[in-house]
Design a binder for these strands. Sequence first.
RNA 1: GCUGGAGUCGUCUAGUGGCAAUGACAAGAGACUGUAAAUCUCUCGCCUUCGGGCUUCGUAGGUUCGAGUCCUACCUCCAGCA
Length: 372
Amino acid sequence: MLKFDILKREGLARVGVIHTPHGDIKTPAFVGAATRGTVKALTFSEMNELGSQAVLANTYHLFLAPGSGLIREGGGLAEFTNWQKPTFTDSGGFQIFSLPNVKITEEGARFKSHIDGRQFLMTPELSMQTQWEIGADIHMAFDQLAKSESFEDMRRAMEQTHRWLVRCVDEHEKLEKEYLEKGLPEQYLFAVVQGGDFLDLRQKSAEFEAGLNVDGYGIGGVFTAKGMDEMLKTVCPILPEERPRHLLGMGQEPVDLFVGAEFGCDTFDCVGPTRMARNGSLYTLDGRVNIKNARFKHDFRPLMEECDCELCRNYSRAYLHHLFKVDEITAKVLASIHNERFVVSVVEKIRDGLFSGDFADYKKEFLARYYA
RNA sequence: GCUGGAGUCGUCUAGUGGCAAUGACAAGAGACUGUAAAUCUCUCGCCUUCGGGCUUCGUAGGUUCGAGUCCUACCUCCAGCA
């Protein structure tokens, strides 16, 4: 069982530590998106320096390339990538949702590789096997997202997720035994709560999954912070308190992190910060700015006076503007360092705030300024 | 000086009688939430009550219902010959 120490509670929120074979994660924590085994535009030493505690890779992508067998051969995800801290893998369920021409059957999801068009059948069992081979510390169950917002589609997706989840748990237990017998480190399984915006479905999903032998929970199918508080207020109290909760895919908007943490989520992952960065959209305390805009051409101030990242400590807005305009790789690197540092530090401050009791003040002050 | 070729939006470029004129780049702006994303979208002669109006393809004339496209002259550039 995954060890999760809760150090402090405030309402649904908690401050804690997740203990994994690759080290601890102080929660709440922002988990960087390393979909294909790297955080785009960044090295893991840069991730280390900016205070990242964990990263999340994707089973679908690593399954296609380089293949989980190769990662196993390379000593597992941490060893292969030389990211010696905790890792998560997403199950590939989200890709089933986002790729075209995916056929869902009870058995699993048949899809065509976006790389070469080869056909594959991803099943709950195969996802578990692949994730064990990849060797991340925390795995997500192979889940399904609804194809539309309708109640019927949401219900169907949730029920499919539950049926697949049972198979994931079985397979995970089998693999766990196998791997532990070989003296390999433990790996943990998170179930994924579905149900969309329908609170009754969310409740059902949480109730069903609370009774299963899993180490934690992913909360999936969330796309905006709107209504997220109500959803989390429904779901989190049902989930076993001592198991960590990961809010899947949320964190592009800082408000997501505040609301997520406040209502009981311990970890977050999001491609937003690094994607925004590569496209020139940078976080500041006064909201996101597009550094490519002409108004930054002669702006020789640091992007953010209060930021301790490599970009803000050493370079001006005008310089970053220039690097973007001439399309230098370094522009994306520096921007990614900044955005990733920004969200990591926001979550650090959320953690501090929850610990000290200043959370409400910090939230109010931050959001008022950011969304002014 | 002669012969040949060429001059089109900031740049390069398409265009050989119906054209405000092709494409790329540049420029300006926007989007992006478990990454098919170093991506995508929009604007890009001037004005507009978004119907349209006006002015454009080196310059000046001409032919034609109609000219960036054909003709004449001139200007500029390139190549070859003197």
